[in-house]
Amino acid sequence: MKEMTALKDPMVPAPFRIERVRKELSDTFTIDLVSAERRRAFSFLPGQFNMLYVFGVGEIPISISGDPADPETIVHTTRAVGSVTNAMWKLGAGQTIGVRGPFGTSWPVEKAEGLDVVIVTGGIGLAPLRPAIYQIMSNRAAYGNVCILYGARTPEDILFRKELEKWRGQFDLQVDVTVDYATGRWAGRVGVVTKLIGRGGFDPHQTVALVCGPEIMMRFAVEALAERGVPNERIYVSLERNMKCGIGFCGHCQLGGDFVCKDGPVFGFDKIAHKFAIQEL
């Protein structure tokens, strides 16, 4: 009995100190955290998420958007769309946020070695993929062609624009960006990101595809990838569902028999293709 009470409750958050909060876009910000207790290492895999708690306001799941090679700073990028994210944006350096995690499955970065990698992403979906991009770039020779296909609503909504521009300037990366609506002096591509899949840059039979964005975008991305001949078992998608615990207890994130929090959020598409086809599952 005593032993049991000594077990750590996985629902209790650990306090982390905010090092920096910075604006990315009109509705999107990045928050850097370090452990409040001591600068202890926080290791995670690309694609995993944390449950972030704002004192007295609430807790939400947010993907980690930083570099897995930096174990000291945990970086999250999120849109301010609800009460918790709005409260989070108002916090400043030195204040505390509760962290539980890291939770969930990861992008198959190591499994993709020796193959081409195509990353198809839209909007804030780039955030959970950035750790995978960092990891691939740190071991670039292990991969074939690497393509990043990114879609945003408008040029003003392009996330991590400076980094995308930097990556685009490299000879070992193909970066293609498109917007739904051209505003201002945009002279780049206009149209949905899934249209870029047909343009090539990767060998469909030797490619791993990492897909993250709105669910409707992912459906069309998967369709376009299949059309090119990428098999379902080499397509990976990251899903979003309501989560209250992150550890398979609360039941909110169920997708058929899967708990998106622990069996996902990253799924091999072959594992969930049949569920994707069913409305409101």
Partner: peptide, 22 residues
Amino acid sequence: ICQMRKQGKAFRIVEETAEPPC
């Protein structure tokens, strides 16, 4: 599940130990 207390800019978890009911 737990209780938390504000301390300056930070907050901490208030340790509570209760024997589970038998």
